[in-house]
Write a protein that binds this DNA or RNA. Structure first.
Lengths: 189, 189
DNA sequence: TCCACCATGTTAGTGACTAACATGGTGGGG
DNA sequence: CCCCACCATGTTAGTCACTAACATGGTGGA
């Protein structure tokens, strides 16, 4: 059922996560991760383009683009992205909570990993912005809306990973809530 | 007047900017930059901790922290950061417009450079957030406010560097404008 | 003029990442 | 059940960013 490649991939991620958590990202070589997973360092790089990628693997981008398209075009770009992220969060297939926490904690505690995480974010940002641009939103406005929302989301994520208490979902909705337009007296549009 | 270290530093930055622009960041080695500046590669690393740093050198962070503290505490955290960035932009000593453009263009067009730029942004974000926390704003809320504003600002910067027309200042104020609370009929608080 | 110090060079090493080629296990067709 | 083709993997050798330890030389002040 699980093909050989899937098993190898999982073995690499598992070994990497464990070793990085135990000894720190910088004090584990790719060679060691590969050996722990029972392969050579070349195989590692066939699965993950960089040492960081084995920690930062997340393929959610397409879902998010669709979520933006699903929002009513009458809202401001910022509000569309904001609601899209809130909505998508509920539907994403989450891996185990503990594993997610371990990964985010690694990222929060290491400059190089954080840098790469931001780089990934940039791709997500482009996906979100493109979805808006297709609907006629000016590119700069689209990028800004996506950038602001992702900036807020990332802040919540890193804060959680750095040791904050409570559930991740709560933090995300509270973070995005800060970007919400203030309620207009009575009667929501 | 200009000490030897200042001259060497400027020579390295100049050589790097020119070579990177001509041949692309990845196709120039640190060794070549150093040689072009008349020093060895070890001297390069004594001035800049990474190859990317020679492009991403900007020491504005402390100014921004003070700008946040200067905003009235009655405003929302988001609004305080937003106004602080707008205000600080006017007072910053800008290097030559052309050089800035060349640098931002390099960053906009290269994944590794963008990643490091985001990492720098993280430092700036911490400075902004800390200024809020000192005033009693909860840490998560502070990080989110700073993250959202910097996300918007970065989007405007990269869009400009990628070839957008017009002045950088206009883009920045328009980007941050998107995060402004909608005007409350008449009478601004 | 001489001395002390600091910027710089030299050398040697580690580790991430790549390219070219060799090999072996696995699955599907005969 | 066997064979063959293919794909995942290993081997080897190389480049380049970055670091550490030690040697040296020019510059500025006494």
């Amino acid at each position: 059922m699980t093909s050989r490649t899937e098993r190898t991939r999982a073995a690499l991620q598992g070994a990497a996560l464990q070793l990085f958590t135990e000894r720190g990202f910088d004090h584990v070589t790719v060679e060691e991760v590969a050996t722990a997973a029972g392969v050579s360092h070349m195989t590692f790089f066939r699965y993950f383009p960089t040492k960081e990628a084995v920690v930062l693997d997340d393929p959610y981008d397409p879902v998010l683009g669709d979520a933006v398209r699903a929002q009513p075009a009458a809202l401001s770009p910022l509000e569309r992205v904001r609601r899209a992220l809130l909505m998508a969060w509920g539907t994403l297939p989450e891996p185990g909570e503990d594993e997610t926490r371990a990964r985010v904690a690694l990222v929060a505690g290491h400059d190089g990993l954080r840098a790469k995480a931001w780089a990934n974010n940039q791709r997500t940002q482009d996906v979100l912005a493109d979805a808006l641009v297709e609907d006629g939103v000016p590119p700069l406005e689209a990028q800004v809306a996506a950038g602001a929302c992702l900036g807020a989301l990332m802040a919540a994520l890193l804060d959680w990973g750095a040791g904050g208490e409570g559930g991740l979902g709560d933090r995300i909705s509270s973070a995005l809530g800060q970007l919400a337009p203030p309620p207009i007296a009575e009667g929501v549009p």
